[in-house]
Design a protein around this nucleic acid. Sequence first.
DNA 1: TGTCTAATCCCAA
DNA 2: TTGGGATTAGACA
Length: 803
Amino acid sequence: MSFSSLFDGGAGSNLTYGGAVSQPAQGGVLSALSLGLQSNMEGGGQGEMRRMGIIGGGGSGDRDSGGRNSKEEDNGSPSGSDNLDGGSGDDQLDLENPRKKKRYHRHTPQQIQELEGLFKECPHPDEKQRLELSRRLNLESRQVKFWFQNRRTQMKTQIERHENSILKQENDKLRAENMQIKEAMRNPMCGNCGGPAMLGEVSLEEQHLRIENARLKDELDRVCSLAGKFLGRPMPPSLGSALPLSSLDLAVGNNGFAAALGMVAPTLSAVPDFVSVGGSSPLGSVVTAPPGRTTMGGVDRSVERSMYLELALVAMDELVKMAQMEEPLWVGGGLEGGKEVLNYDEYLRAFPRCIGEKPVEFVSEATRETGMVIVNSMALVETLMDATRWMDMFPCMIARTTMTDIVSTGVAGTRNGALQLMHAELQVLSPLVPIREVNFLRFCKQHAEGVWAVVDVSVDGIREFPQPGESNMGCRRLPSGCLVQDMPNGYSKVTWVEHAEYNEAMVHRMYRPLLRSGIGLGARRWVATLQRQCECLAILMSSSISSRDHTAITAGGRRSMLKLAQRMTDNFCAGVCASSSHKWNKLNRPESIGEDVRVMTRQSLDDPGEPPGVVLSAATSVWMPLSPQRIFDFLRDERLRSQWDILSNGGPMQEMAHIAKGQDHGNAVSLLRASAVSANQSSMLILQETCTDASGSLVVYAPVDIPAMHLVMNGGDSAYVALLPSGFAIVPDGDGPGQLAAASDKSDGRRAGGGSLLTVAFQILVNSLPSAKLTVESVETVNNLITCTVQKIKVALNLENIV
DNA sequence: TGTCTAATCCCAA
DNA sequence: TTGGGATTAGACA
């Protein structure tokens, strides 16, 4: 006898336990029976099931239940549950059974068994599956639906309970550990003799504990917030939002970091300061590192790490507040076109000067920007924490970067809590703006599920770094970085804060408003670049690449071409900014060179990506009273190229291939060909990359060999394509409405009110012998080239009268 | 008193 | 209209 035969056996066997328990006298018995069955069922096995079937069959003999069921059916009620509720149509039941009693019933073990079976395979059956099951089990379709609904809820609750207990255990463990540490700190013992430890002996261990403790603090914080989430109420201790320096319940005293940086320490703890910078500790004794211990600039390495950690925590706190607070910290935002400005009085009130006082000759630049970026928080965090990927994400902003040191790799294989020391050269694409060289800590913290923050803060005060060269402006970054929050649509909301102090005297007057406005190296540029680059990645990764190809390029060819274009643009930026990634020799300016044209040379020796010989770079920046968009559109239009480009041979150019890198047509890599062919350049094409976003635009190009390009477009290695880039960088002049006009005096030769700064740069091979000496003629040639190009552009844009 | 379970109510997509 | 979360109510340990 099978289940189906039981259930298919007509009215008598068409039973439900609802019918059975509707008998008050038997309800308890049968329910107990059903429970007993359930436990049997758990034993599993066909024999068991059959037994249950038989017992169930006995139940089916209960005429009352059978009868009642048929009555229910006769009743024609659309819902079994209505009947079970003692619906008004069932007078007999109301009379015979107290309403409370008959409402309750449980599905039969068989039914549950079957439901469980399907649930294992598919916890979310569709309408069809549910109907089929309800037919088979003789249940209302809605009963099946409710069952699955409840089962899912139950499953969720079980999982949550399980996770909760794990978190609680973890939490207890951390508390215990913390107590131990606290205890150990109260009674320092010498590891060798067991006697009371001397202060000098404790310091190493103590510093280790501090680091460990900070990590535990973070971890506990995370666990508490998670546990709180599951319990639906906050779990003490909640330390995440507390000011790190004041949350001394866990932090083991004040570690002297503040003193090291000239800050006023908020508290003095029982634990003395071991860091002695330019003086003695509060106890009056200078602790010198014992022999064999690593020291850096006189500061113990573990002390140094502890200082990094403390600084990172303070910086993180500041970043989060800077990103989230509104007025009075930030004023002037919100209105159409109005720019937010940091209220420095309020800033100084709200935050400790975590990296010390601002040098007198420095100016401040603080900007904030929020934008939606098509990337998830984890991916963005990974990119930011990886030096190479970070540079690839912001190619025109970062000239060079290295990871100097890793202080912490993060908790449990994630980037949460990762702390690293980095060096970077940040650039604005103009010879008039020196590179910003910064040594900073980068600290990553997960604040909630899908919410991350990455903060940078300068560390020049802690470790000795080589003094910046002359092509480098003094610069320090106050807590800067971003808050990333996952959005349901796959985008992230990124709030960027960029706060720097730099020596403005090193920057040409023309570029000062740009920098102060935040378009130069501020939050707007970071966010705009991030948006553009992520959009590009999304487009390249999507299968439906929107392409206006005139020629069919294979996917491999497209990749190669983009890689080549990226190398071209990177080299262009390196030439404009004289970054240290290439060894440029600055030329003492001969008389013939214009005042603002910077000329440099370098030797190209073993790089297959460049022609060998002496490479000369010339770059200049000029102001133009036109919008960046207007200039960009003009320069990237291949049909208008003959108006300024000698490579066009006097005629319009033709686009041979086009790879879109963004929604905006201005973001693309294309291949151009001069339609007017001259004898010696017949085998030449022009590779061009253009990009544009709210912070500026770029047109970079390089003549390339046709056979070499052919190879690349078929997916060949682009590393062997020799090229030297030239091009333009266009940025708004920063003097737009509402911008500071601090530097817009007459000496710039510019008028107030929304123009552009155009940088023109060429790299050309002046001699194919790397050892050759530079001649005055070649310098004059390149100077002529650059001044003529600028002049031609001005003429084409009707600006010939502008000096 | 707390847990399990079938069912209901209400809200948002 | 549907599914999910919150809630209810009866049974039971």
